[in-house]
């Protein structure tokens, strides 16, 4: 079971968990429009979320637009 740093919090996900699972675990809206994911600092295109398995100690950031600027 991979333990990753998801939006700054250490969390353990089931074996075989993917970036798409991390998006759900972060609480992003289900349709996931307006959401972007970075794994270890690099943008992970939406089309690759399902196929990208999370690795131990990976750093996952799940972002969306907020008021600001």
């Amino acid at each position: 079971m991979p333990t990753v740093l998801l939006n700054g919090e250490r969390i353990t996900l089931p074996d075989g968990a993917t970036a798409a699972d991390a998006v759900r675990a972060a609480g992003a809206p289900s349709e996931s429009r307006g959401v972007a994911v970075a794994v270890d600092g690099e943008v992970l295109p939406r089309g690759e979320w399902q196929a990208t398995a999370l690795t131990e100690d990976g750093q996952v950031e799940v972002l969306r637009a907020v008021q600001g600027g």
Binding site: N7, G8, A26, G27, A28, P29, G34, V35, A36, E61, V62, L63, R64, A65, V66, Q67, G68, G69
Partner: peptide, 14 residues
């Protein structure tokens, strides 16, 4: 708009 970590408690879609 700014980009920040997802906050599941944030109301509505900006």
């Amino acid at each position: 708009v700014a980009m920040r970590r997802v906050d599941p408690t944030a109301p509505g879609s900006l």
